[in-house]
Design a protein around this nucleic acid. Sequence first.
DNA 1: GTTTGACTCTATACCTACTGTAGAGTCTAG
DNA 2: CTAGACTCTACAGTAGGTATAGAGTCAAAC
Lengths: 131, 131
Amino acid sequence: MIKIGEMSKRTGIPVTTIRYYEKVGLLPAPGRLESGYRLYNRAHLERINFLKNTRKLGFSQQRIKALVSLLENPNRTSEKVKISVQSQLEEIREKRLLIQNIENQLKQIIAKCDGGEKSECPILETFHEET
Amino acid sequence: MIKIGEMSKRTGIPVTTIRYYEKVGLLPAPGRLESGYRLYNRAHLERINFLKNTRKLGFSQQRIKALVSLLENPNRTSEKVKISVQSQLEEIREKRLLIQNIENQLKQIIAKCDGGEKSECPILETFHEET
DNA sequence: GTTTGACTCTATACCTACTGTAGAGTCTAG
DNA sequence: CTAGACTCTACAGTAGGTATAGAGTCAAAC
Ligand SMILES: [Zn+2]
Ligand SMILES: [Zn+2]
Ligand SMILES: [Zn+2]
Ligand SMILES: [Zn+2]
């Protein structure tokens, strides 16, 4: 049984964020000392690692909650988990395509400008076109 | 001279967003009718198109403000504009690399799961590893 | 001439996913 | 016993908007 500071050290997740995860329902409320200090167990540590890993992969809180309820459901199937992660992959892929599109547009816009000392700049012209 | 609803129609930017741009200093405060209604001119229309175009390219408000002050500075140079947009490109490129990295990790994780009816799932195991 | 409907105004709350701070209480080492 | 580290709650702030509520205004139809 560890206090929140120790949990923070072990997981690398800030104390404030751990409390926040409890508040938004991603982490079950732990027991408390008489003083009110939170006391976490092994299950909490595992859950925080789960949150840390899914967060790193860009999962939204909503999607993480869906995954967690699968995790907690003894009738879950490997298939359902896979489908959920595939949706995440699709979302990320679309984001990547969007950003790649922006990247290409920026490259094209930059190519139009010779970077001289004049105040006229084709980039600025592009930026106030009506679209 | 047009009212905010007409401006919204011409630019495709919602009325609330136009007011918001004024509030955060991206759009100069327009004149007003006696009733308090905002009245925009051609320069405002151009500015909103500028905001629309740069926003579409993922520029932050801070960066847009920097660009706008270049735009308003008669001593600006094409080079300075180019440098600013190049920084934006670099930022976007880094975001794209990050998201591409996530995408690849997700693909690898998904590949580990056969998607069967059992409750064990290598994806879930991956997600609560300590990292 | 008035009434209806569309439009506009301000102010405030909400969104995601946190982070930071104020002010008060608690624990532990010297 | 006290100093310093830790923890608590509650609230404000971040970016970049979106969405209400409640009040006032304008133009056209009746
Ligand atoms: Zn699986
Ligand atoms: Zn121009
Ligand atoms: Zn240029
Ligand atoms: Zn496990």
